[in-house]
Amino acid sequence: MSAVVSVQDLTKQYRYTKRGRGFAGLAGRREVVVDAVAGVSFQVRAGERVAIIGPNGAGKSTTLKMLSGVLEPTGGAASVLGLVPWRERKRLAYRIGVVFGQRSQLWAELPARDSFALLRRIYDQDEAAHRARLSDLVERFALADLLDQPVHRMSLGQRMRCEITASLLHGPELLFLDEPTIGLDVTAKAAIRDFVREHARDHGQTVLLTSHDTRDIELVCERVIVVNQGRIVVDQPVDQLRRRFLARKVVTIQSVGEAICVELPGVVRRPAPAHTTILEVDTAKARVEQVIAAALAQGGIEDITIEDPPMEEVVHEIYAAVR
């Protein structure tokens, strides 16, 4: 597949003057240069769902803003859908959807329906195509009861569902999501994750997402780019990240007895309620098959599940490795 996003040595610097006390008590000034993005290079193929993650200030949002044309870089090059974002921003806007978690593209005093109608005009969309796409999005996102409600009266979760709908009404090929679930409750987060994943899969849409929520990464994306201090330190598929940073498995055993005792090198028991035994297995020291065999030998086993550690632990290990 061809690359829809291509980035080479992209940089963004901010300069400011820092005031201080100079020699002999005289006021002094000096220019400070901060590298928000320090020479990142990557490509995203059509249909990929990619997460950009990293600590606060790592350069994630700045990168998305440059790729969507909001910011002009200090150096380097980028192509998005064959266009240079900061030079061809208007042309690009017709082909991408953008959602910044803390920035609204809806009119607060207007009902959502009116905002959607205005966006049809802005993007010069055919009325029949707009109506069909809106109907599909309203149904899939359960928005029927919200269409005639002013945006400022909506909960944050309701507004974010409308924000994502607005970003998709013109049929974009590429969707940029910057912290789309920030501040939402568990139910609202699940609804947005499920929708983005399914919509991208059904329409072959490319998604580039930033988030601090590990479940966004785990449930929506197939690939993770880890940024630290403006530089890419890891770029791998999610399953490879797990194998690279956590050579561990989590074995959960449901039993008739209160607990199952497995004493093998590399096996650590985690806290768990009665009749549940959770074992963390270092696969470099013990095979999962050995652990299961030792558990079954004790009898009274009702169920066994084998899982990778949660993505949150993977991200923690990544951050620890790149400090």
Rank of each mutant, 00 (worst) to 15 (best):
I96R: 07
G75H: 12
Q102S: 05
V80L: 11
R49W: 02
P73M: 11
F100L: 11
S41A: 12
V50S: 05
G39E: 10
E72S: 13
T63P: 04
E48R: 07
S41N: 03
S68M: 10
K60L: 10
L71W: 01
S79I: 06
V98M: 12
R103W: 11
S61P: 09
S61T: 14
R89G: 15
L64A: 01
V84N: 14
P55K: 14
F100Y: 02
V99N: 02
A77S: 13
G76K: 04
Y94T: 09
K90L: 15
Y94H: 08
N56G: 14
N56S: 15
P73A: 05
A46L: 05
L83T: 04
A78I: 11
G59V: 11
F42E: 08
T62E: 04
P73D: 08
G76W: 08
I53T: 10
G97H: 01
Q43W: 10
R49G: 00
S79D: 01
A51V: 09
Y94P: 00
G82T: 07
K90H: 15
L67A: 02
L92Q: 11
Q43K: 12
R49S: 10
S68F: 03
P85K: 14
Q102G: 09
K65G: 02
A93V: 07
P73L: 02
L67P: 06
E48K: 05
K60N: 05
Y94W: 14
G75N: 03
K60D: 01
R95V: 13
A38K: 10
G69M: 06
G75M: 07
P85I: 04
V99S: 12
N56P: 03
Q43S: 14
W86L: 14
K65E: 06
A38H: 04
Y94M: 10
T62V: 09
G76Y: 05
R103V: 13
G82N: 11
N56A: 13
G47K: 01
K65S: 13
R103Y: 13
T62Y: 01
G47Y: 00
